[in-house]
Design a protein around this nucleic acid. Structure first.
Lengths: 252, 252
DNA sequence: TAGATTGTTAATCGATTAACAATC
DNA sequence: TAGATTGTTAATCGATTAACAATC
């Protein structure tokens, strides 16, 4: 949509957009309909208007002050992250508990002491906090953020946080993405014939059960039987985004 | 599972595990059944055995050498990330094109020049590459990784990469997580009565259509009507993981 | 008016879950 | 044997998509 807007394309049909996005046009129309009735029959969607409406719905037109707590490499990286400003995020403050770090600067902002948290959250109306501390400090920092009035937390520490009702937490685990790649990589490589498993073990119910039964009957030395190559499931294949649950990466 | 293993709990039932994970026990059993028939009726699952089988299936028991290209703050942060080693990931090399960075060290490893890429990939059998370069360099680096033989790429640069068939790409956009938080935050705050929209605009088909029709008939000054508070959909509520598509964050 | 395209319904498809035979 | 619990089937639920009336 942004690309179309930059090329000054005035309108776009659900069919064109769907093709560009790789989704079904009916689904796209239905999704858009949740935002309101912003298209024109026989014409399509006004690009500028739709960009604005989607931006507004997603909260991109608002100013979102955020605090980043824990200014190590990752805190630094996030403070410098280019994508934030354009989406309405503004770094209200960088905070750290380590006196050796406090007073230094990152991305043009001074690193301030944790003790200033409460005042910053209040005066700048901060509702979103980012935790980039070591795992041991994360829950404590989280409690303090919540106490100060923050109601949304983005957690990069490898710790599952406990928060009261009404507070949202999102956890980013950088190694999960690598794990998903490794999982697919492993499948690309193909399984060794005599690792005690068969490709049939991954087939749906009845086939799998039959294969397992056969193998049990034949004893542990049973060889991999000749099976048709399983086609890659549509979901697990393309797309560069995160996948929510196992069913998206597991074979059909 | 790991926690149970550490407490030397010998077996666990699908019911117990499902309760702990907050999922349905039938779904859990069905998911496990894709891995094979690893439970015992009347008893449950052997904890150690299941941990091993799941680890193996996910590729956690393998050694995965990875190269990280682009050693800025984010590259540094990833090189130091603790969660990698325990999941079988090993940083085979840190690479950068900038002579000012080459020769420095991060996480105990020397930063080497991009020109060494091909040799490293070949000699260490690297199949996974991580891109933490500026956006402008990402596609070029990606092409070179693929050319060298890398078949899985984790991309932190805000660029959609084009790769040949058979190569997997996962894109991590750190600001998307913040956007999802901001989206929920906006909804928590509640909508302004006279912003020209109604909570009914978010209701499913017929209700929405009727509301829109009424508002058109009544003109632009129509006020927000009295509507029941919409209950938070199960999917959008708890959980600290990423969500794959809009249907997970949009209201029912 | 004829052609195009939306917004929505109804049909289809797939995922989740209740139920239960198998079996420890 | 009686109780427990798996693995799987069949029923249910929800999401996707084809189809089309509404309408520009």
């Amino acid at each position: 949509m942004t690309a179309l807007s930059e090329r000054s394309v005035p309108t776009v049909s659900s069919e064109e957009l769907a093709a560009a996005a790789g989704v079904n046009s009916a689904k796209l129309r239905k999704d858009f309909s949740y935002l309101g009735s912003y298209g024109t029959r026989g014409v399509g969607y006004d690009v500028e208007y739709l960009v604005y409406q989607i931006s507004r719905e997603l909260g991109l037109t608002q100013d979102w002050p955020v605090v980043i707590v824990g200014i190590g490499n990752l805190g630094h990286a996030l403070a410098n992250y280019g994508g934030f400003a354009s989406r309405g995020f503004r770094v209200a403050a960088l905070l750290d508990a380590d006196p050796a770090v406090v007073g230094s600067s990152a991305a043009g902002l001074p690193v301030r002491h944790m003790d200033e948290l409460e005042e910053i959250v209040e005066t700048q109306a901060v509702s979103i906090g980012v935790i980039t501390t070591p795992p041991g400090a994360a829950q404590q920092v989280c409690d303090r953020l919540v106490e100060a009035g923050v109601t949304s937390i983005l957690n990069f520490a490898p710790t599952v946080l406990t928060v009261p009702d009404g507070v949202d937490v999102r956890k980013v685990d950088l190694s999960i993405e690598l794990q998903i790649l490794a999982f697919h990589e492993q499948r690309k490589a193909g399984e060794e014939p005599d690792r005690g498993e068969s490709v049939l073990d991954r087939a749906p119910g009845p086939v799998r059960a039959a294969a397992a039964k056969l193998r049990r009957a034949a004893g542990a030395s049973a060889k991999r039987t000749d099976a048709k190559a399983e086609p890659e499931p549509a979901k697990g294949g393309p797309g560069q985004g995160p996948e929510g649950d196992l069913s998206a990466v597991m074979p059909a």
